[in-house]
Amino acid sequence: MGLFNGLFGNYSEVSVQELQEQYGAYLMPDEKIQTGFRLIRDTCIFTDERLILIDHQGVTGKKTRVASIHLNSIYEVTLETGGLGFDDSELTIHYIVSPYYKSNNLSTSAYKFEFGKRFNVRPVYTALVSIAHQNNKRWNG
């Protein structure tokens, strides 16, 4: 079922131990992995500080792109749950990419995750929307 989900763009959950063994070298000192998901070769890791997006490229997957979305830059999270048929759940994170969050010329971006129907995406959504809410209060309070 994991490969079937991967072929259709769905992330599946990976154990923290496995993520630590494979990607521990990408962590900052004292950073802790909370959870993570894999899409065939690509991986998304949620830590206590950031989201780490690991994209294995090329035929062999030896070339790797690692990107981070800092949790304190997330300002909006949207969720579209799966409907009937082959619909999947989509979770989109909107975040600030500018180094200064209170500048007049903010630069933003978004990242979309697709989860299969059987995956309960609501706890992930709740955690991320709580972070976005706290960020908005901190920036605007």
Rank of each mutant, 00 (worst) to 15 (best):
M1Y: 13
G2R: 09
L3N: 04
F4W: 13
N5H: 08
N5L: 10
L7D: 02
L7T: 11
N10E: 08
N10G: 03
S12K: 04
S12A: 06
S12V: 13
E13Q: 14
S15E: 02
E21S: 11
E21V: 13
Y23R: 05
A25W: 07
M28H: 13
M28D: 11
P29S: 03
D30N: 14
K32G: 04
I33Y: 02
R38L: 02
L39N: 10
I40F: 08
R41N: 06
T43P: 01
C44Y: 06
C44S: 10
T47E: 02
E49N: 11
E49R: 15
L51M: 08
L51N: 02
L51I: 11
L51T: 00
L53K: 01
I54P: 00
G58I: 06
G58T: 04
G58L: 01
T60H: 02
G61E: 00
G61M: 04
R65E: 11
V66A: 01
A67S: 11
H70S: 07
N72F: 05
I74S: 02
I74C: 00
E76N: 15
E76T: 05
E76Q: 15
T78E: 05
T78G: 04
T81N: 10
G82Y: 12
G82C: 15
G82L: 06
D88C: 08
S89W: 02
S89H: 15
E90W: 01
L91M: 10
L91E: 08
T92Q: 09
I93G: 01
Y95V: 12
V97R: 08
S98V: 08
Y101E: 09
Y101H: 15
S103C: 12
S103R: 05
L106P: 06
S107F: 01
T108C: 02
T108E: 00
S109F: 03
Y111K: 04
F113L: 11
E114N: 11
K117H: 12
K117A: 14
K117I: 07
R118G: 09
R118P: 00
R118Q: 10
R118E: 01
F119L: 14
R122Q: 14
R122D: 14
P123Q: 10
Y125H: 14
T126K: 12
A127P: 03
L128I: 02
V129G: 00
S130D: 08
H133L: 06
Q134D: 04
N135A: 11
N136M: 15
R138H: 07
R138K: 12
W139S: 06
N140H: 11
N140P: 00
